[in-house]
Amino acid sequence: MKNQANPWLTGNLFVLALGMLPAAILIGALLYFTAWAFAFSFTDLALVGKKSVEWSWVGLENFERLFTRRGFLESLWTTVIFVFFSAIVGQSVLGFLLAATLRGTQSTIRSVVEVCIMLGWLLPDIVAAFLWSATTSQTGLINQLIVVPLGFPPINFINSYALLVVTIANIWKGTAWSYLLFSAALDSVSREVVEAAKVDGATPFQRIWLVQLPIIRPHIATNMLFITIWTFTYFPLIFAMTGGGPGRQTETLAVFLYNQSFSRGNLGFGSAISVAMLLIVGVLSLFYLRLLREPK
């Protein structure tokens, strides 16, 4: 970073500053919108009607509603379950197992499996939602292939096990990311270390648990950070599959925010929900970043 002696830079400071200007404006806008979201959360602003023009400050009323009215806490709980099972348990563990297993297999098997998983990841959210609605419907693949041949009446999975279905759909969709990240991470573990452990008589399980996992710990933390935040705020898949229903079974915070802000038009209350989400995501990030920095 010793750049004071780089004449092509110091001689063109004006040009460089000009280059940074658009980004600075856009980032400034983002900061401004964030500040706005905070400000809105103290108002009774509405999407339509009288209160969309003549809104007033209501202090902490919106935040009180978060805890006193039904909705927010239930949504938070649904979100926690959804994040825990689909991202942390499903995507991470499955992604790691795949990455560890595929390293030892032939390249053809590896590419085939990789492409299959990637297809889910690359598929647009709405198509994935469409696909899983069809797969779990009463005449869908699961019923035709498993439930009916076993002699049970067909089950409408989205009606009966909505949260389970969206969780599985999200695992299906998101595992590729964890797989790719862990694959790159395992590549960075030097062969010698693993060989040495093998010579010392470590079993395959010990080699993974005691040697590789501690080495790729920063990657695990990074991965957790990303997928937790993404899943926490993930909207399209659930919204398109269930709209939050049946009832409120799959109404995660992102869906709750949308329903409150844009279906019911309570923008002030919606902003309070987003502020709460920001705080939760912030706390989670700090937690993972600590995990990332902590010395081994």
């Binding site: 401004y32 964030t34 705020t233 925010l257 987003s274 920001l278 912030g282």
Partner: peptide, 18 residues
């Protein structure tokens, strides 16, 4: 660091002002 924090921002959070 501001960028890192902003990147973690859920986009749903700024939807209303946007």
């Amino acid at each position: 660091w501001t960028l890192v924090l902003l990147r973690m921002l859920p986009s749903a959070g700024v939807l209303v002002p946007l």
